[in-house]
Design a protein around this nucleic acid. Structure first.
Ligand SMILES: [Mn+2]
Ligand SMILES: [Mn+2]
Ligand SMILES: [Zn+2]
Ligand SMILES: [Zn+2]
Lengths: 124, 124
DNA sequence: TCCTACATTGGACAAAGTCCAAGTCAATGC
DNA sequence: GCATTGACTTGGACTTTGTCCAATGTAGGA
């Protein structure tokens, strides 16, 4: 556990945190000015391999890193400002895919992304 | 309707088609060698604006372009080879998000991505 | 035919991410 | 204490994906 890794872990702490690698780097630099982009990418990659952090692709640009890896959840994204909230739908979406729609695949996982407009963007 | 646009439209024809912009360009070049990358991007952008083609983000790299825009559907992705199939789950996933999990958002859309292993990759 | 509006092109540029050789540093063994 | 070692970090080059723009080409109407 080096200072660099500790800083990345600190940045990735909290609820509804879904930062891009560059955002992680910017916040890490604020705490440890000499930390490099490469180290941030390396550390994020390790955390993903360890299963401590998830990569999510809610926007079609940069990957986002989600420290909420232990509690399964899905995402609600504001189409205007990009805010992302963790959500827990009822039911199991896997059960909604009949075997006739599985094309022989072994289906193991499902990702659900809800899109809409957040309260802040709706009033503005 | 120019020759370039016709070729892009031809490439984007069929079922379960989810090509990246570069793949579209490669196939377009095979039919019309002088077509440029810029034109492929321009044409894809117009088709998306017109609602004729959807952008999907099933992998975390390049956007994929989906000509099946008129029939709502979701996707089943092979984690090994990246093959993508269109699927039609039963039920309405929007109904599975209780208002207590909507955080005041106006939710208008939902994208579901199933992941697993396709029959070809399972036997290989 | 000539003009004009629009489409196309190649290349420069930008954003996101990967890779690598070299440098740093702390722990180990002598 | 000192040298060795190996893991970690760094900066920069490079790649991929995508955007932008000035220059060029072209189809069709006046
Ligand atoms: Mn999350
Ligand atoms: Mn599709
Ligand atoms: Zn918003
Ligand atoms: Zn496969």
């Amino acid at each position: 556990m080096t200072a660099q890794r500790r800083v990345v872990a600190e940045v990735l702490d909290g609820e509804h945190v879904h930062l891009t690698a560059d955002e992680v780097h910017a916040r890490a630099v604020a705490k440890l000015p000499e930390i490099s982009r490469a180290t941030v990418y390396n550390t994020l990659g390790e955390l993903v391999s360890l299963g401590e952090v998830l990569e999510v692709a809610t926007d079609k640009r940069a990957k986002r890193y989600d420290p909420n890896a232990h509690r399964p959840h899905h995402h609600l994204v504001c189409a205007r400002c990009g805010t992302i909230r963790d959500v827990h739908p009822t039911g199991n979406p896997l059960a909604d895919l009949p075997s006739s729609e599985r094309f022989g695949f072994t289906v193991s996982d499902v990702e659900v992304t809800y899109r809409g407009v957040c309260p802040t963007c709706a009033t503005a």
